[in-house]
């Protein structure tokens, strides 16, 4: 049972990690992340990189949808903008890795603001549908702006070099992706300690009152779109370096639903939720693969069942969490935490 968390100064009470337990958990996580590449085999390292990219993107979407309440079904298209930016820069200009990623983020942020412009007039589901429209229009651009995007066959990338060192294997990429994503998550957590994050939450909870309290709605909605798409753009850029080929079909519409599902399952409006949701939703299809492989001796053509079973489970997770655990996995984690805080005294 935790008795008290006494603080000497307001700045320590405003810190992100406030208790020794939180620091300890963070230390364990850091150690695990450091040790992982030496312990995991190629397949799991591949998954670790994919999870890292998805965490970055889901955190970005969480800023927009979970915290600001603007539902976007355009996250995949935003990632595609980032991926294409990286691909084109590397092919035509040859600028360095980090510059390309930042440029991907910046350009995607601009596109995000454009896509967010309908929030001038509409909100809620109407805005969500406007983002669907925007993703299809962006897809059209990727297919038809042949001179830049090379049309449906897409662009292949050389392996990235990071300060002279080529990033050829997933082992290398892991060491670049994980710090970048960690910084992005930290940034998101910081954001919600400041006036900008509070303004976002206020817009989500009661937009009109927020305006009367001094928050210019359109500016902050667009800012949320910008930050969120900046994250998506960087995630897309990492994706491009990871798979090393970008085509219009790399980011199908279902990917946008995937990210929305990730933050729903993880927990909208909590940083932790974006992370656990992305990890969980990326790993579930792989777990299903093991399940199907395991079942294959007993079930005829189990292999052909994998894809439909994934589709069903994916949908069922969205429905199940929304109906039974609308606050997502983050809330389950909080519940466990509270249990141990109160232990051995509990209701």
């Amino acid at each position: 049972m935790r008795i008290a968390t006494a603080k000497q100064s307001y700045s320590s009470d405003e810190a992100l990690l406030r208790t020794n337990t939180q620091w300890a958990w963070m230390g364990i996580l850091a150690l695990a992340l450091l040790a992982a590449p030496f312990l995991l085999d190629g397949y799991w390292l591949y998954l670790a990189c994919l999870v890292t990219i998805n965490v970055a993107s889901a955190t970005g979407l969480n800023i927009l949808t979970g915290f600001t309440g603007l539902v976007s079904l355009g996250q995949a298209a935003f990632m595609a903008v980032g991926a294409y930016t990286v691909a084109v820069l590397q092919r035509d200009v040859g600028t360095p890795f980090l510059f390309n990623l930042l440029a991907a983020g910046a350009l995607t942020a601009i596109v995000g603001v454009l896509v967010g412009l309908p929030s001038l007039r509409v909100k809620g589901l109407y805005l969500a549908i406007a983002t669907i429209a925007a993703s299809f229009i962006l897809h059209f651009v990727f297919v038809n702006w042949q001179s830049l995007t090379n049309g449906p066959s897409g662009i292949s990338l050389e392996p990235a070099t990071f300060f002279g060192a080529p990033l050829t294997s997933n082992f290398h990429l892991y060491w670049v992706f994980v710090p970048i994503t960690a910084l992005m998550v930290l940034g998101a957590a910081n954001l919600f300690r400041t006036r900008i994050g509070r303004a976002f939450i206020a817009i989500r909870d009661r937009d009109i009152s927020a305006e009367v309290l001094g928050i210019p709605l359109l500016r902050y909605k667009l800012l949320s779109f910008a930050i969120s798409s900046f994250y998506a753009g960087i995630a897309g850029g990492m994706w491009a370096y990871f798979f090393r080929v970008v085509t219009p079909e790399s980011f199908p519409f279902i990917t946008s639903i995937f990210f929305l599902a990730a933050i729903i399952v993880g927990g909208m409006g909590t940083i932790l939720g974006g992370i656990v949701g992305a990890v969980f939703m990326t790993l579930v299809p792989e777990l299903l693969r093991f399940l199907v492989e395991w079942a294959s001796p007993f079930v005829p053509n189990a292999g052909t069942l994998l894809s439909p079973v994934r589709t069903v489970v994916f949908g069922a997770l969205i429905v199940g969490f929304l109906v039974f655990e609308p606050q997502g996995m983050a809330e389950i984690i909080q519940r466990i935490r509270r249990f141990f805080h109160l232990w051995p005294f509990r209701k």
């Binding site: 589709t311 994916f314 949908g315 069922a316 997770l317 969205i318 429905v319």
Partner: peptide
């Protein structure tokens, strides 16, 4: 949306 996915599967 989730239901749609279940039905497709």
């Amino acid at each position: 949306v989730g239901l749609g996915s279940v039905l497709v599967g």
